[in-house]
Design a protein around this nucleic acid. Structure first.
Length: 580
DNA sequence: GAGGTGGTAA
DNA sequence: ATGCGTACCACCTC
């Protein structure tokens, strides 16, 4: 038994967990912690994780018990677990599964072994509109059409419902994967893809067929969606974020399955086909003539007897699609995403309406098996010039962020980095068009923004892929463009506030496996001692939670540190960056 | 093909 | 614990 000084965790009463990052077992502990807690702070030596009701429900849905968590935390904790904390962990984990939805014949029942809780819930005013009639102490019949709404409401109240009411099969459709038949193309599911589909199909401790699969960029989420369709063998509606992605889904489906053009349809602004497999954008579903008018294309959900709905980029799911999804709870639902993060407080709706997280593949694990590149992340802190510092001090908070973002000193650093990585395909990614235009002028590299037409984009992508253009400067289009070619170096010159989503997305741009050492470089240039620096820390939390670490280099000084710091990739950043 | 509307990030 | 202008996309109408 290690003595308490060697133990790297402190569990606090408010369900936060502190992890000492220098502990030899820190990396392993982080991997486990991130299964039931989220990272909220990561300064140099100690990381703060937080268990929330939702992160604990996710753990419960994955089959962990409160006792499992407590007995895992205890031996690593410096101090005995505060009594309140242990009780809360048991309470929240135990909440999941306390209420179940079950179907008996045509009836939908809300069931609980805990008669006290069920009794209390029955007294809530909002419950009255869902109740058909009481079925003794342990069950109550509820309206079938309220299945989604009821789960949403109860989750908000702190009682997540385990939905065992099953699904309808939908219109049958034989979908055969190529490569599984003689003479097919050479295509096989990777092990983790198979596991993900399986986890979705079976479910954790609860009924499968609905839920979320979380996979890093480049791990083949589309393939998992396709394999899920094939496994269920039914008409499928795929919802995704933009038209390019619709095309990509269609291409992949035709490429990986034996479905024909006649069976796969696009439902977008241009083309409105409803075929056994239909791919649509979120936008078209949420479209309406005017604010107070109804959604024009909402009926797509009922245009066919879908047996499966795939929600690509499920973290982007817009409010009206939540509403529509609440009404189709008997249809199987698969959510796909790289980062299950929403900061608009609707995570619990994703949990209730799409389903619990069924499978998550940690990014670094995929890195170890070589499916994605190893990335060296460096944060370069650049001071503001004296003039800019003065303007900054006098500016309103809002203006300050932009002044820091557009810090002219970043231009020099960018040029230095381009020299350092001469010859390597490089993306420069930023937030402000003016800043990017200037960079384009200074470096001669072409720039792509929302204004750039599709033809021009494709021409530039092709030139970049062929190596005729070595550097591309991209605006926020990089957050959406699914066809942006992969690079081995990314330089982030500015970004939007504290978006963890965006940081992950941008890192994702250099993850495709590289020939040779399979290595990529991610730089983020930040104005020192500004608002931007704070937001940068927030941005990095998701990736640090995934086990990435950033070497911090200060330009003009020599200070160097490490954020994340659980695994150390020595920074290969040269001294020549010290530009003073 | 441009311009208007509405929706997204967080 | 964070922001309410900035950038972008898709749809529809003309």
């Amino acid at each position: 038994m290690r003595n308490s000084a060697d133990r790297p965790l402190v569990v606090q009463k408010d369900l936060t967990v502190l992890l000492e990052t220098h502990h030899p077992e820190a990396e392993e502990l982080r991997a486990n912690l991130s299964r039931f807690a989220e990272l909220v702070k990561s300064p140099e030596h100690v990381q703060t994780y937080r268990m929330t009701p939702l992160t604990l429900w996710q753990a419960a849905a994955a089959g962990m018990s409160g006792e499992d968590l407590i007995s895992w935390l205890e031996p690593y904790s410096k101090f005995p677990l505060p009594a309140g904390a242990a009780a809360d962990i048991r309470k929240y984990v135990g909440r999941y599964g306390l209420l179940r939805l079950e179907r008996v014949g045509e009836e939908l029942l809300l069931v609980s072994e805990d008669t006290v809780v069920l009794g209390e819930l029955m007294n809530y005013a909002f419950m009255q509109k869902y109740i058909v009639e009481s079925r003794g102490e342990r069950a109550v019949q509820v309206l079938r059409e309220a299945r989604g709404e009821l789960k949403q409401e109860l989750a908000k109240l702190g009682y997540p419902v385990s939905d065992m009411a099953g699904y309808h099969r939908g219109e049958a459709l034989a979908i055969r994967l190529k490569g599984t038949t003689a003479g097919g193309a050479d295509f096989r599911l990777r092990d983790y893809q198979e596991e993900a589909v399986d986890a979705f199909y079976r479910g954790g401790s609860t009924m499968g067929g609905s839920g979320v699969v979380v996979l890093p960029c480049g791990a083949g989420k589309t393939v998992i969606g396709i394999a899920a369709m094939a496994k269920l063998g039914c008409a499928t509606l795929v919802l995704t974020s933009n038209v390019t992605s619709v095309r990509q889904w269609k291409r992949e489906i035709l490429d990986k399955t034996e479905l024909t053009e006649e069976q796969v349809g696009e439902y977008t602004g241009e083309t409105k086909e409803v075929k056994p497999v239909t791919i649509a954008t979120y936008q078209i579903i949420t479209h309406r003539k005017a604010k107070d008018e109804p959604f024009v294309h909402l009926a797509l959900f009922n245009r066919r007897d879908w047996g499966l709905i795939v929600y690509d980029e499920v973290h982007l799911l817009p409010a009206p699609v939540f509403r529509a999804t609440a009404d189709i709870q008997a249809t199987r639902r698969l959510g796909l995403t790289a980062t299950l993060i929403r900061e608009d407080g609707r995570e619990s709706d994703v949990f209730s309406l799409i389903g619990p997280k069924r499978y998550e593949l940690p990014w670094r694990k995929l890195e170890r098996s070589g499916w994605i590149a190893t990335v060296e992340c460096t944060e370069i802190q650049v001071p503001l010039s004296e003039e800019r510092r003065a303007a900054y001090a006098g500016a309103e908070a809002r203006r300050q962020f932009r002044l820091a973002g557009e810090n002219a000193a970043k231009l020099d650093i960018t040029r230095t980095l381009l020299q350092k990585h001469a010859g390597e395909p490089t993306l420069i990614i930023g937030q402000y068009l003016e800043q990017l235009k200037l960079l384009s002028k200074l470096t001669g590299a072409p720039m792509i923004s929302g204004e750039t037409g599709h033809e021009e984009r494709e021409r530039l992508y092709a030139a970049f892929k062929a190596g005729r253009e070595r550097v591309l400067i991209v605006s926020k289009v990089a957050n959406f463009a699914v066809d942006l070619p992969d690079a081995s170096v990314a330089i982030q010159v500015s970004g939007s506030f504290g978006s963890r989503q965006e940081e992950a997305q941008r890192l994702g741009r250099i993850l495709r496996p590289k020939p040779g050492a399979n290595k990529a470089y991610f730089y983020t240039i930040v104005s020192k001692d500004t608002k931007e620096q704070e937001f940068t820390m927030k941005r990095q939390l998701f990736l640090v939670e995934q086990g990435y670490s950033y070497s911090i280099v200060t330009v003009g000084g020599m200070a160097s540190a490490e954020r994340g710091g659980l695994h150390r990739v020595p920074s290969s950043l040269p001294e020549e960056l010290v530009l003073t």
